[in-house]
């Protein structure tokens, strides 16, 4: 029983992190049909900004991370993606792929390829014990933070003018422009929100790993893609659900797979992704592309 609760906590906490990642990717995809590989590099930038500001008081350190990553995300849109407005999804995908590669290489130039140690405030890795169950405070922080953020996002999308505009743009970008929604502004807000989620993810990931590397963002972004696909690209709630599911599945595979197969759990996970894509071949992934025809 204790073990079960322990696993459940792990599963929900990992799922929350994955949901956060998926939201950051789905936000952009829903609005501009871009699967942004460089989202991972936003996380990487966040990690290095925590490293650079490591000697500052921790609230400043976290604030630096948030500001730098959101600024980076906005700059990414302005400098790299705006020239490609209206390009097809594959062109956008390759562009973001190239951008991701460029930023990783740039990080190598600046910081070298070896991991840099980053320390975060100690309250992230204190151990909390309730009865016979003990878990790290990071688990709790992750879950609470993600719940708050998802709730905040939902309110934002329902209650604010920009939020409603974003939902309209996600449903039909062209028509949204026809009723006066400013395309560039909505996209910029989406990038800011995506950057926000990347910054929070960077803090959580660094708190867990304790290091920053140029390739830090690669596996989170893959997870985000997978979660977004499972949830049906373009739907934020779907993406969050997909992330949660993926986190839970990862923990389940970890627990259930025999030792000899355990190293392959990621392989199983991605095989599952292919199955999902197949089970819903016209899945929400391609629906949009289909209706793009003139």
């Amino acid at each position: 029983m204790t073990a079960l609760i322990q696993h459940a906590i792990d599963a929900v906490s990992l799922g929350s992190l994955y949901a956060l990642l998926a939201l950051g990717v789905a936000m952009i995809f829903g609005i501009m049909n871009l699967l942004n590989f460089a989202y991972g590099e936003l996380i990487m930038i966040g990690a290095y900004s925590l490293y650079v500001s490591r000697d500052l008081p921790w609230p400043v350190q976290l604030a630096v991370c948030l500001i730098v990553v959101i600024a980076a995300s906005l700059a990414m849109d302005r400098l790299a993606f705006r020239p490609f407005r209206g390009a097809s999804a594959p062109v956008l995908l390759v562009t973001s792929f190239a951008l991701s590669f460029a930023l990783q290489s740039l990080a190598t130039v600046i910081f070298g390829s070896r991991a840099k140690g980053v320390s975060l405030p100690s309250f992230f890795d204190e151990s909390i014990t309730i009865g016979s169950v003990s878990f790290s405070s990071l688990n709790l922080v992750t879950v609470v933070l993600v719940i708050v953020l998802v709730g905040g996002l939902a309110t934002f999308l329902r209650q604010t003018t920009v939020g409603v505009q974003m939902r309209a743009a996600a449903e039909n970008f062209t028509t949204a422009r026809l009723v006066g929604v400013k395309a560039d502004r909505v996209i910029a807000v989406a990038f800011a929100l995506s950057g926000f989620s990347a910054a929070v993810a960077a803090i959580l990931i660094v708190a867990q790993r304790g290091t920053a590397t140029p390739t830090l963002g690669v596996s989170p972004v893959l997870i985000a893609f997978v979660a977004t696909i499972i949830g049906g690209l373009g739907s934020l709630y779907g993406a969050a659900f997909g992330g949660m599911l993926l986190g839970v599945l990862t923990v389940v595979l970890q627990v259930v797979l025999p030792d000899s197969l355990a190293p392959y759990r990621e392989a199983f996970l991605y095989a599952g992704v292919i199955v999902v894509l197949l089970a819903r071949p016209q899945g929400l992934v391609v629906v949009k592309a289909l209706f793009e025809r003139v």
Binding site: L35, P90, L222, Y270, A271, I274, L277, V286, A289
Partner: peptide, 16 residues
């Protein structure tokens, strides 16, 4: 599969 779904399914194959 078509479009992004195919591109990503193949990415999954690469990871596997």
């Amino acid at each position: 599969l078509s479009g992004l779904a195919a591109a990503l399914a193949m990415f999954a194959v690469l990871v596997i």
